[in-house]
Design a protein around this nucleic acid. Structure first.
Lengths: 205, 205
DNA sequence: GTTGTGACTAAAATCAATAATAGTCACACG
DNA sequence: CGTGTGACTATTATTGATTTTAGTCACAAC
């Protein structure tokens, strides 16, 4: 119900405004269709029937618009992951589903919405707040799963939680991070299952 | 003493020839100094005092020369790893040292011999035989360590060897593969230790 | 104060003419 | 046979002039 502000100081002018939404919507379509670089700010202005200058009343820069779109894209992945985790009963199963959903959603984006994927990859490479927030959120979900597993006695409790979570995060990074995922597509099919096995073995009490 | 043919059908003409060595030597210096793309085949020809055409009596293409250099570069990493592994006594220690040496040597190459690193990264991206052979060799060393650990009872023996090794290989890949390592430099300091801990926990009997 | 814009500039993308380069081949010399 | 090359071409980089584009600003209308 509540609007998560992500962590983005990426916009200016009124935060809640009809025109802002129109810009985001137009950007979503144009970026998805023609790509970030091929669509000009003037294109977006034309699409919503205003002047280019007016756009800059709502967004600091073209990149800020890109971040908004990127943020939406990555949120969709997060949502898919959260749903997959929610339906699983045990922490073990949660982890498996999390990893698998993360990768398959990412790969799906790569093949079905390549232009949006490219923005996400670029954002990850440049360390945009949208990408940072995404990675951080994944880490939180992971932490929650590990904590739950520890509490239920399903996972070991000897190692420091932060350290363990961080190590698992490192294992998943090549498939979480869109910038890296594209280089690992050849193993993206099998990797989640194989790495889940390895990680879960390492978590055994 | 014996020359390993790597797996490269990358050359032609007499395999053992003084001029071939001269070419490789000149290429090593030029590529390291000016980079692969900035040095022309004519440059190499001039450096050894022959015509460009003569170079093509020994190498199929400029890329083939690049592969030879790349192969040498990657072999140096392998050598460092083999040495590090050799001095360790237990499989656990072997694995730790292997991973650590692999990353630190790779990172060192990145910062000290960037031009050569770039060739290695490119070769990995293009799947050149030199890069394939390198990855394969790493996998072999890893397999040897795991096997030894299993035999000595230090590592578990329930999971299929191939599968386990493959999963560990996936964990190391982002730091082994020069194409990927450059995106992980920010965690390259800590990752080997943290991931070694995780992997070794997963190998516990 | 809010909504909205045309005219402007500095930086970046584009494009076509030009130059450089990878790779071949016929041939020469011993 | 092995050693070696100049002259050639098709493809790829480079350059520099031209056009687009991101982003600003002063100002208008309400």
């Amino acid at each position: 119900m509540s609007q998560i502000p992500s962590s983005a100081p990426a916009s200016r002018g009124p935060a809640d405004h009809n025109v802002r939404d129109q810009i985001v919507e137009a950007a979503g379509e144009h970026f998805s269709h023609y790509g970030y670089e091929k669509t000009t700010v003037s294109d977006l202005a034309k699409a919503i029937g205003f002047s280019k200058a007016y756009i800059y009343k709502f967004f600091d820069s073209k990149q800020a618009i890109g971040e908004a779109i990127c943020s939406k894209t990555l949120s969709a992945i997060i949502a898919a992951v959260e749903e997959a985790v929610a339906v699983a009963s045990t922490p073990t199963e949660k982890f498996r589903r999390m990893f698998k959903t993360l990768v398959s959603t990412g790969v799906g984006l790569f093949f079905n919405d390549r232009k949006l994927y490219d923005i996400a990859a670029y954002s990850a490479g440049e360390g945009w707040p949208s990408a940072r927030a995404y990675c951080e959120r994944i880490r939180q979900i992971l932490m929650e799963i590990v904590r739950e597993g520890r509490e239920s006695g399903e996972f070991e409790r000897k190692t420091p939680l932060d350290e363990t979570v961080h190590a698992i995060d490192l294992v998943m990074q090549p498939y979480v991070n869109p910038l890296l995922l594209q280089y690992n597509l050849d193993v993206a099919e099998e990797a989640p299952a194989q790495l889940s096995n390895l990680v879960l073995r390492s978590l055994a009490p």
